[in-house]
Write a protein that binds this DNA or RNA. Structure first.
Length: 411
RNA sequence: GGGGGUGUGCUUGAGCGGUCAAAAAGGGCAGACUGUAAAUCUGUUGGCUACGCCUACGGUGGUUCGAAUCCAUCCGCCCCCA
């Protein structure tokens, strides 16, 4: 079997590495325990976390042991790295709840049964730290002059934002995590986004000073779409891995709407397809690239939500955009009382009510600008009244713009 | 503790006491064009019981016929000194 390191490299996962050769050998020589920290500020992970997740999955498939940690302790501080503002602090209970959701999602990609892999909350060891001891044992190993040279801190220091002492300690805590995981589980490698490079190295350094052992760091490139947007952000907000927050259909649509220029890269990152296949799909041009996008969308959805959901999403997407009717299952639907429909509802009110417009004024603009459709027929008159006569098979299919649909049924 | 500065809509950022729902850019949304892509062009971008009304320029009070614009005070942030 080929070295996972090569696999990761070929697929574009590796941005920086403390020492390429050593890390590559490490994987070849023995089973490696590695860790990645996840942000616990939300109940669900989103598409942006998929890079580390996929990297972890590749490694686990090659027989190595992942540890996913959520920052129960560190999240309560807020990571200043590359943030223009301080992150909001959240409560321990909230983090606990978020952790449960995150674990569930990770388990679709990773085996975290405390043998093949682990899921830990760093609150477990951080909360019991004693300040004096921490300063004495850990704090003495850090040089402030080095720390403030880090890009993230420097920006905060130079701009007017300021940096609180609390946030400044983030790096120490993250380094301490690494030390702890090394001591307790023999964890020898930390992975993270490239913005974490400095923090990860701080951990490497700390382990070296205290334990005299060499551990390693590896970072992933920070992904943005070709359009310059952050991964996983859309107009409607983040694209979550949680089916409750982002339906498998929406998830599928996110991927199928990928910019042409990103398709090949994304296939390598977000699917397990062999690289030959990835390259073949990546070579498709113009209209043909839709095939590649369909594969990307299907594979990613399958990983996140399972094959049957992926099939459904794919079918829904095809009928919706392939000229056929919509797959009714996939469209958000709301019920409206029959008598209201018989009386008639002003079109503005209807679009607002079902959430296709956030206010009546927005609905008004939408309609006036020709973006409002009922049963695929455009309505531009704001005084249109929608009543039961427009029902088709007992339902109305509302559309705002090109892609946002909503179905209304009688109650 | 002392001194100076700053706080505007989703973001950045203009803003003479009336003509400011607030310039400009970015972002968003919609339309045209398209391949459910990109680029481009056009329109639009606080709310409402809608040619009018309401809410908004950190909070609270005040001056004024009238305040985002002036004053006081409080809060947050930044810089310098201690």
């Amino acid at each position: 079997m080929e070295n996972v390191f090569e696999t990761l490299k070929e697929r574009g996962f590796i941005q920086q590495c403390s020492n390429e050769e050593r890390v590559a050998n490490l994987f070849a020589e023995k089973q490696v325990t590695y860790y990645v920290g996840f942000d616990a500020t939300a109940v669900s992970l989103h598409v942006g976390s998929l890079v580390p997740i996929m990297a972890m999955a590749h490694l686990q498939r090659a027989g190595h042991t992942p540890i996913a940690i959520i920052g129960g302790g560190t999240t309560m501080i807020g990571d200043p790295t590359d943030k223009t503002e301080m992150r909001p602090m959240i409560s321990a209970e909230q983090i606990e709840a978020n952790g449960a959701g995150i674990l569930e999602q990770l388990q679709r990609y990773l085996k975290l049964d405390n043998r093949a892999g682990r899921f830990l909350n760093n609150a477990e060891w951080l909360l019991s730290l004693n300040y004096i001891e921490f300063l004495r044992d850990i704090g003495k190993h850090f040089r402030v002059n080095e720390m403030i040279r880090a890009e993230g801190y420097r920006q905060r220091l130079e701009r007017e934002m300021g940096l609180s002492f609390l946030e400044f300690n983030y790096q120490l805590l993250q380094a301490y995590d690494f030390l702890h995981l090394f001591q307790r589980y023999g964890c020898a490698l930390q992975l993270g986004g490239d913005d974490q490079w400095g923090n990860i190295l701080a951990g490497v350094e700390l382990v070296r000073r205290i334990e005299g052992k060499r551990v390693h760091a590896m970072t992933f490139p920070l992904l943005t779409t070709a359009g310059g947007a952050k991964m996983g952000k859309t107009a409607g907000g983040a694209v979550w891995l949680d089916a409750q927050r982002t339906s498998p259909y929406q998830f599928y649509q996110y991927w199928i709407n990928t910019d042409d220029r990103d398709v090949a890269r994304f296939l390598a990152y977000f699917t397990f397809l062999p690289m030959e296949e990835v390259r073949r799909l990546g070579r498709l041009k113009d209209e043909e690239s839709r095939e590649a996008k369909a594969v990307l969308a299907y594979e990613t959805t399958k990983l996140a939500h399972g094959a049957s959901e992926a099939d459904k999403a794919q079918a829904a997407s095809r009928t919706a955009f392939g000229g056929g009717g919509m797959d009714l299952e996939a469209i958000p639907t709301s019920a409206i009382a029959a008598n209201r429909l018989h009386t008639g509802i002003p079109i503005m009110e209807l679009f607002h009510e079902v959430g296709l417009a956030t206010s009546r004024s927005e609905a008004r603009r939408l309609i006036q600008q020709g973006g409002a459709y009922i049963n695929e027929k455009q309505y531009r008159a704001i005084d249109t009244v929608v009543d039961a006569k427009l029902l088709e098979e007992n339902a109305l299919l509302l559309r705002a713009g090109k892609k946002r649909y909503h179905r209304v049924v009688q109650k």
